[in-house]
């Protein structure tokens, strides 16, 4: 045991990024080993597209949207798709919650914490992998949308920006999800608790209905909900109908508000969760 083990030099971006990338890579390998999980996480949003487009579609008018020649269900489908995108990436948080709870229950956390790796790497890697998986989900979802009549009319680069904002939002909610996963007593609780908060958060927004249809106090809540602004940003950038916006600052500056709120949420939840992580042991 006298041999000297070589170590790598400190990388340019710091160990948090390098170690995070390593965790992320193996996390994505893990995804390939459980294709069933990926399959069902794609099936669910596709079901939502079909249900909303064909069941609710005709019943939800979007005031001030679309051409007079279009039927209300045609208008709704174009209105709906960015909403589904927003909701789907928000639900990425649940995977992070379960993922962290799972790592805690197996003793893997103890091993990671006993390694000389960067403190934030496990969380950085996990959230990055969870957001990365959403690229595939968004791709499949976009194809489904195109099949039911959704169209991108806002130009190529705007569409790219829309997808990037959705991924930024996915990354943000993954941090929230991971933070929840760290304080859950077991995987079973995590898989329920990881979902419940997402329903009010995604439904009290403009994802499926125009904000003007909500009671006034909910309108205010929904206007400041980042789900609303990321969805509104996507609608504007994809060139989809947006409806008439109530008079709130976030809704007038949806892209800016989305970026700011994501930055704040990432800062807050990464600080909380990394601090929690550095004190945690497996259960």
């Amino acid at each position: 045991m006298t041999s000297v083990i070589p170590t790598r030099k400190r990388p340019l971006l710091g160990w948090n990024i390098t170690d995070g990338a390593a965790v992320s890579r193996y996390d994505l390998v893990q995804t390939l080993r459980v294709p069933e999980l990926m399959f069902f996480s794609i099936v669910q949003p596709i079901m939502f597209v079909l249900l909303f487009a064909y069941v609710f579609g005709g019943a939800i008018p979007i005031p001030g949207a679309g051409e007079p020649s279009e039927s209300s269900s045609e208008i709704y489908r174009n209105y709906l798709m960015p909403g589904i995108f927003g909701q789907t990436v928000a639900f990425a948080a649940a995977a992070s919650t379960v993922g962290m709870a799972e790592a805690m229950s197996t003793g893997l956390i103890d091993r990671f914490r006993s390694l000389p790796m960067a403190n934030g790497a496990v969380l950085i890697g996990r959230t990055f992998a969870d957001a990365t998986r959403q690229i595939l989900v968004l791709a499949v979802l976009s194809l489904t949308g195109l099949l039911v009549g959704w169209r991108i009319t806002g130009g190529f680069w705007n569409a790219v920006l829309a997808y990037l904002l959705l991924l930024l939002f996915a990354y943000t909610v993954s941090w929230i999800g991971a933070s929840i996963g760290l304080v859950m007593p077991n995987v079973e609780t995590a898989s329920t608790a990881g979902l419940v908060w997402l329903f009010p958060v995604t439904f009290i927004s403009n994802a499926f209905v125009p904000l003007s249809s909500l009671p006034t106090f909910l309108q205010a809540v929904a206007a400041f909900n980042p789900v609303s602004t990321v969805v509104l940003s996507a609608r504007e950038l994809f060139g989809n109908p947006t409806g008439i916006q109530p008079d709130y600052w976030p809704l007038q500056n949806p892209i800016l508000y989305t970026i700011i709120s994501c930055a704040v949420l990432i800062a807050v939840f990464s600080t909380i969760s990394i601090r929690k992580y550095s004190k945690t042991t497996s259960r």
Binding site: Y26, V29, M117
Partner: peptide, 22 residues
């Protein structure tokens, strides 16, 4: 404390990387 979905080799490679070994 191993990742069950990864192979034995992948587990060892991952922990090695996280020890900052070449």
């Amino acid at each position: 404390a191993v990742n069950e979905y990864l192979t034995g080799r992948e587990n060892l490679m991952m922990f090695g990387a996280l020890y900052h070994l070449p």
